[in-house]
Design a protein around this nucleic acid. Structure first.
Lengths: 222, 222
DNA sequence: TATCTCCTTAAGGAATACCGTAAGGTTTAT
DNA sequence: ATAAACCTTACGGTATTCCTTAAGGAGATA
C-alpha cells in the first residue's frame, strides 16, 4: 500500500472526504494542500527525506484567489511534479469530462489513473489505487469507453483545433484565412478554410458553425 | 444547535467532508443522500416522528445516472421540501457562481444561506449555521457583494438563454423564429430574433455568433 | 513517363446572416 | 389626453457563408 500520499485540491470539504476514503484503505500518512505551489513545495521537501511521497492525487482546476500562484492548474502541477520526481504515481481526480483534455493528460504525462468526480468517486478512487499497486492504469467508468472512440476525435489535427479556436474567438472566415497565410500554415486559402470547416461539421454532425463551436468546447478541443 | 441535519449531494467525498465539518460543531444526527428523490423521502418519513430534520444542506446540480429520478435538481428538491416542511432551514452549497441563479433562489425560496464551494467552504458552512441559529441569513463572501449589483448583471432574461441554447443546438435564425412562434413566446419574428442576437453580441462583446455561443457556454448560460 | 489520386485553390451562384429603416402598436411619463 | 419612449415586425440592400464545380500542382504507382 502507498505510504505517503499527497492530495492537491482546493475544496477543503473534498480534501476531508478523500482523506477519509484513504484511511479506509489503511493509508496513514496523508497530506493535503489547497494550492498547487504549496503542493509542489511539499513534494520537494519530502523528496530529500527517506519517506518521499509515492502518490499524488490532484484536481485539475483551482480557483484563483488573492494569493498569487506560480502553478495555477493541476496540469502545471503534474508537469512540475514529474520534473522533480519522475516515478511519482499520479491520480487525477476531477469533474472534467471532456475526453480531449483527458486524453491529452494520458498521452502527455502518462498519468496512472483518471477518476471523474461523481456519485461513485469514493469507490473508484479505491479501485484506482488497487490498480496502480498492480502496475495497471485505471480510468473511470465512462471515460474508458470514451477513450476507445477517442480516435474519431483525434482525426482532428492541430490545424482543426486552431481553426475551432479562432472561430470561437470571433474571427470570420476570411480573417482566419489571412491568419493561416500570415503564419505560413498549410491550406490557408479561404476555400480551404471553408472546406475544413465543412469537414469538421460532417465529422461532428453539426448543423451550423455555432453548433460546431459548442461541440468543440464540449469535447475539450477549444 | 441543529439536531437533525440532512445533506443532499451526489459526490460522496463531499458528503463525507461536510459530515466531518458538522461533527466539529457537535451535530450528531447527520444523514446523507446522493439523490434528490431519496432526500425528499427521508425528509417525509422523519416528519412524522418527534425528531424531524431541522436543516437541509443541498447542492444544486446532481449528475443523472441510470436511476431515473423525479426530482433532478437541488432547486426542485428545495421546492418539494418546503412544500412538506415550510419551516425547514435550508443552506444551498454549490459551485454555482452565476449571480442570477443565486438571486433567483433567494427571491423564490427565501433560502437561509448560500455557501459557494471553494477553499473556505468549511469555514463558511460553520458561519452559515451560526447565522441561521441567530435568525440571520448568510451569503458567502463574494456572493454578498455581487448581490448588491445583481440587477446590473442580470441583463439576460430567460429568452436570451433559450436563444443561445438553440443556437448552440444548431438551429438557424428562421428555425429559431419558428420555434418561438410555435411556443407562443414573445418576439418570435425573424427580425426580432436577429435583433436579440445582435443585442447579445453587443452585450457580450462578441464579433460573431460563433463567439457568442462560446461566451455563453463560458458564462454558464448554455 | 503516363496516369491516378489527393490536396489546394479559385470562381460563381444560392442561401443565409447582417444591418439600417420605417410603420404600427404598447407602455410610460407628463 | 398627449407625447415620448419602447417593442415588435416587415422589408430591402449588402455582406458573409455555403456549396458545387473545376483547374492546377504534388506525390504515388505502374
Amino acid at each position: 500500500m502507498f505510504q505517503n500520499v499527497l492530495i492537491a485540491e482546493d475544496q477543503n470539504t473534498i480534501n476531508k472526504g478523500v482523506e477519509s476514503t484513504l484511511r479506509e484503505l489503511d493509508i496513514v500518512n496523508i497530506t493535503t494542500s489547497q494550492y498547487c505551489d504549496d503542493a509542489l513545495l511539499k513534494l520537494k521537501s519530502k523528496l530529500k527525506t527517506d519517506a518521499p511521497f509515492d502518490l499524488l492525487i490532484t484536481d485539475l482546476s483551482f480557483k484563483p484567489d488573492h494569493r498569487t500562484q506560480h502553478l495555477s492548474s493541476g496540469e502545471a502541477l503534474i508537469e512540475a511534479a514529474l520534473g522533480i520526481s519522475p516515478n511519482l504515481k499520479i491520480i487525477v481526480f476531477s469533474i472534467e469530462h471532456r475526453i480531449g483534455k483527458i486524453k491529452h493528460l494520458i498521452d502527455t504525462y502518462d498519468i496512472n489513473a483518471y477518476v471523474e468526480k461523481g456519485r461513485e468517486e469514493g469507490f473508484e478512487l479505491k479501485k484506482a489505487i488497487h490498480n496502480i499497486l498492480n502496475n495497471k492504469t485505471y480510468y473511470s467508468h465512462g471515460v474508458e469507453q470514451l477513450l476507445r472512440n477517442a480516435d474519431d476525435i483525434c482525426q482532428t489535427d492541430q490545424y482543426d483545433e486552431l481553426l475551432l479556436q479562432l472561430l470561437a474567438k470571433g474571427l470570420k472566415r476570411d480573417q482566419i484565412a489571412k491568419y493561416f497565410k500570415e503564419k505560413q500554415l498549410p491550406a490557408g486559402s479561404l476555400s480551404s478554410i471553408e472546406k475544413r470547416i465543412n469537414k469538421l461539421k460532417v465529422l461532428f454532425d453539426a448543423n451550423t458553425s455555432e453548433q460546431l463551436v459548442a461541440i468543440g468546447i464540449d469535447r475539450g478541443l477549444i
